[in-house]
Design a protein around this nucleic acid. Structure first.
Lengths: 239, 239
DNA sequence: CACCTTACGACAACACCGTTGACCTGTTAA
DNA sequence: TTAACAGGTCAACGGTGTTGTCGTAAGGTG
């Protein structure tokens, strides 16, 4: 094999594909994202990506060592897009809420990339920029360094984790989702109050709440707990 | 095909496998869990499971329609085990904290099951019991029905989402994880303070905090925000 | 005890997947 | 003009989930 992948920047012999396409890292990442957005995350495979590009699947291994590497590149691009679409106002809590929702929405379409980027360090530009930005928001708000890092970590992981989780359900075809809701109604709405009093009492709320993502709620809880801690710290009553 | 799967309860012709094993839903689920625990979540495949059971892979389709169905059965068994290992004390916040950590730990080894069970209704016994129990804890603590459901939803999804996320990193072989940490040190610890002041200022904390799961922190934030809301409600100052 | 039915395990095949080693050729620098 | 080699291609390996078909042994029945 002798290391198939070339340093990425110093790539010179740009020979076109049999079908006339000139490959590049950006083109591959772009096409991968398009493919995912159009046909769902499960539709992405090396072979399908090759076909979409008009290239042999094995060509991609000249640009990425494995599929993971490709997903990390997608993740970094995703981070960049999210960050560029975000306009901070100076109100840390509102800004983080907005950013969290944007991260969640962005990652929702690319759950495999989201999972990877949470436990792997891409070390790429956009990732570094995001870390710098978010920790900056927290430090500027008045969080001490250690606390800022812990909240940053929980904030980012929660956005990515919920995105990965939620993507599974939004990826379902519409009829399947409605079938799910029907099962909810059929099983939970019918449990008798004497054996399952709490479910029976809240059945109405369960019906309406369960089909929605709980991320916004979780995000608000996280931010209001952080705000409470900040208030404590400012009062000098730090734990 | 004429629906290969039999109603599960009324199964009568218990013909042994060529290798002498008598299959059953429980045996299959047990074996699947053992396989996952011993060789990691990625080691589970229909073919490997068949081999471990001493049966042809296709036999399993007499018990489960697809792999998803099997994972849902695993998920339900997991819920049951977690709930059985949990001893509530009556202090809602401590109890939920304990339960959250147990759910997270349990699901960590079975991320595929965790993801599935978050957006699919198993409708099985253990799941129903868990819903009843958790909502009961919240209502008994004094949360009004709508709020109890919303917090329940966020709580459960958070545990499952972090489990699915964290499992990816704990599944890495030890040397790979150490390589990750090394990358962290190599890239983030070296960023100059003039271009990345916030990272530079908190580098020490990032080093120690990032390799750990942020779930306990996120859980504590969620619970303390919930406690604050409860206090508000009790004071009659409800939002 | 012998017979029939049929549940259920086995087999073989299909279409897909990621990945790799060997090959061949167009591009480029000298 | 030419030689080197980057990079696209081919074929193959071993894996995956899933299904149509078939044989047989278990169970109920007489």
């Amino acid at each position: 094999m002798t290391d198939r992948v070339v340093p990425s920047t110093a790539r010179q012999r740009r020979r076109p594909t049999k079908q006339g396409v000139v490959l590049s890292e950006e083109l591959i990442v772009e096409t991968a994202m398009r493919l995912i957005e159009e046909h769902g995350a499960e539709a992405l495979s090396v072979r399908r990506l090759g076909r979409a590009l008009g290239a042999d699947p094995s060509s991609l291994y000249r640009y990425f060592r494995h599929t993971d590497d490709l997903m990390l590149a997608v993740a970094d691009e995703l981070i960049g897009r999210t960050l560029r679409s975000w306009r901070p106002t100076g109100d840390w809590r509102a800004d983080l809420r907005d950013l969290g929702l944007r991260m969640h929405a962005g990652a929702l379409a690319h759950p495999r990339a989201a999972v990877l980027s949470s436990h792997r360090v891409t070390g790429r530009d956009h990732e570094i920029q995001a870390v710098e930005t978010i920790i900056g928001v927290l430090r500027d708000a008045g969080f001490p360094d250690a606390e800022a890092v812990r909240i940053y970590h929980a904030f980012v992981d929660q956005a990515l984790a919920f995105a990965a989780l939620d993507s599974a359900s939004t990826a379902l075809p519409r009829p399947a989702r409605e079938a799910e809701a029907a099962v909810w109604r059929a099983t939970y709405a019918r449990l008798p109050a004497d054996t399952h009093p709490h479910i029976a009492a809240t059945a109405r709320h369960l019906m309406t709440d369960m089909p929605r993502s709980s991320y916004p709620m979780a995000l608000d809880l996280l931010l209001s707990a952080a705000a409470a801690r900040l208030a404590e710290i400012r009062d000098g009553t730090q734990t």
